[in-house]
Design a protein around this nucleic acid. Structure first.
Lengths: 334, 334
DNA sequence: GGGGTATAGTGACACGAGTAACCGGATGCC
DNA sequence: GGCATCCGGTTACTCGTGTCACTATACCCC
């Protein structure tokens, strides 16, 4: 391991171009400071030759902020679709001159996490409303974070919020089942996921159903043969069988349909099944899967645009409300 | 939006504790500098009361490096499992006092990307060997990045490398099919993925098979009914039918098995099928799916430990070689 | 020739933290 | 008493950048 020369600084560029460091700075940030075309090009040439890259630490120390948008993400991208939102978000933010950095948020909970994020002095932070408690937001604000944008429900008064409601897919799916005339529903409640997550979505389904006088059987299960078979076996008896099932997501829906077939029940004739997430496999296996899902690119776009607007002193993107509405994809299974 | 007070600095802590800023620094970094127990606790109390969080920019500017491990990730987590490696990696790095930040690498290609990463002056960068060209690594080194660790094959002479070979799962799966006596193989080559990715894995399968005198039919397809059905239809004729198929990954394997059943072919009696990735659904649908996969937690552990060791001036973790070997999960389909 | 103004460029300071060098006082040892 | 040593703490400099305030030259106009 030979000693490597240190990275060139703006002083090196200045020396090489035969000008002062201030001039280099003005040129490279093309500030509106009069600089002759000739020295400008000399500076640019020197920077290129030295492969100069400004030191982000020094820059954000001086500026008091960075161009970083920090996105704390949960350890496992368990929620299907969340990972893809983030993938799209990166591109959208880049278009707007910002740099997205992901940071696992499992390492520090509560206010500890906020403190860790604050250390980076990002320009903006986009995080789940559950993590964005009032003290956490206050801490980030004091740390100089200009835009703290929350995602999720319920919306809170102390920070702007993209009302991205994961339970909405459950509601939309349920409403479709009701529209088709089903009144005896069932809802899978996965054990593997964080309990509160599955629980909330179940409650949304129940509320939607009860408003129409429909019943909802609760089916706790996980993604194993035994678990699903046990749940399904008692549905052989038509009296105990629901008309339709909301399977929480497409993986469970596919597995459920498979298990129903093995039990001798047909989908959708005996039981209708609907999932959520719009996974590719759902369009492929027979019967093809009906599903409710978010329009990921639209959501990513309004989040990025809202962050940019907040940094520029404006409010949320007005398209937020429509972008967060889930869509239905109707195929054979329900 | 009311004006918020700026974030407290170490000077604020010093003022509150009635000591100098240097003392605060010594206490908070518990350097081996004699400080009385009494002032130490006064400083700690002041820091806690002010919710002081050090400014990472200032710290890394002064130190010339940060505790950041930057991991540029491709826009789409195309390789199933790569995303989960990263999830595990975060935890492993945190255990070792490092902070992982993910950065989309689609925004800037080639040396441009390296320059963007260099701006953050991370302590370490872990990136794919394809992105880690010689000039890119040299640039990072000159930018003060202490540890540049590459992942992937081929290994290169100019930087330490974790030889994580995505084609290895294909080889292991193929070897299993050969061991079972299959000599007429087929291999799915997905169109959706980056071409080179699918192509490399296909070639690995071909090489492994030819060494044993077996043939490999190439099946270009994507994850749609039409595409798979077209491929499978000509297999109704036993003369043209392969003994066994490597389906590239578990999603394709599940879809393929489904299509084969609809065509009237049984798995594994008529055709054996093996995937890779060890997805949960594979253990569930009938026939249960055989699959080759990487042991994600082990891989994450050796990567993290190697980064830590490189920062400490040591070499790669000696367990790297064994950790990157893929494992077979044998179930019903092959 | 004096005063105003635009142009091109420089000097110097601040941002927040880490740390080498220094300093006064108490203690120990011959 | 004289010298070294340890303790507890401070002063002052540094990292790389952005930018305010300033200088110097040239030009124009009354």
């Amino acid at each position: 391991m030979t000693a490597v020369p240190p990275h060139p600084t703006s002083a090196d560029v200045a020396r090489r171009a035969g000008v002062s460091r201030a001039t280099v700075s003005y040129v490279l940030n093309n500030a509106d400071h009069a600089i002759s075309e000739e020295t400008r090009s000399r500076v640019l040439a020197a920077a290129r030759e030295l492969q100069y890259a400004p030191n982000a630490s020094a820059r954000s120390l001086r500026a008091g902020r960075s161009n970083i948008v920090l996105v704390p993400v949960p350890e496992a991208p368990s929620t299907p679709g969340v990972d893809t939102v983030i993938g799209h978000l990166d591109g959208e933010l880049t278009k707007r001159g910002l740099r997205m950095l992901l940071h696992g948020d499992r390492t520090a909970a509560g206010i500890q996490g906020a403190r860790a994020w604050a250390e980076l002095r990002p320009a903006a932070v986009y995080l789940n409303v559950r993590r964005g408690t009032r003290p956490a937001v206050a801490l980030l604000r004091r740390a100089g974070v200009q835009a703290v944008l929350l995602g999720g429900v319920p919306t809170v008064p102390y920070a702007p919020c993209v009302p991205l409601d994961e339970t909405a897919v459950g509601r939309v799916a349920t409403r479709h089942l009701l529209d088709r005339g089903h009144r005896r529903l069932a809802c899978l409640v996965p054990r593997g996921l964080p309990a509160a997550f599955a629980e909330r979505r179940f409650r949304a389904v129940v509320e939607t159903a009860q408003a129409e006088g429909a019943s909802v059987e609760r089916v706790d299960c996980d993604l194993t043969t035994d678990s699903l078979a046990a749940a399904v076996s008692r549905w052989r008896d038509p009296v105990r069988r629901p008309d339709a099932v909301y399977a929480h997501n497409d993986e469970f829906a596919i597995a459920l349909i498979h298990t129903l077939h093995e039990t001798g029940l047909d989908v959708p004739r005996d039981v209708a099944v609907i999932g959520s997430g719009n996974r590719p496999l759902g369009a492929l296996l027979r019967p093809t899967l009906s599903t409710a899902h978010f329009v990921v690119p639209d959501i990513a776009r309004v989040i990025a645009s809202s962050i940019r607007r907040l940094l520029d002193g404006q409010g949320l993107d007005p398209d937020v409300a429509t972008a967060v509405q889930p869509r239905l994809v109707l195929r054979e299974s329900a």
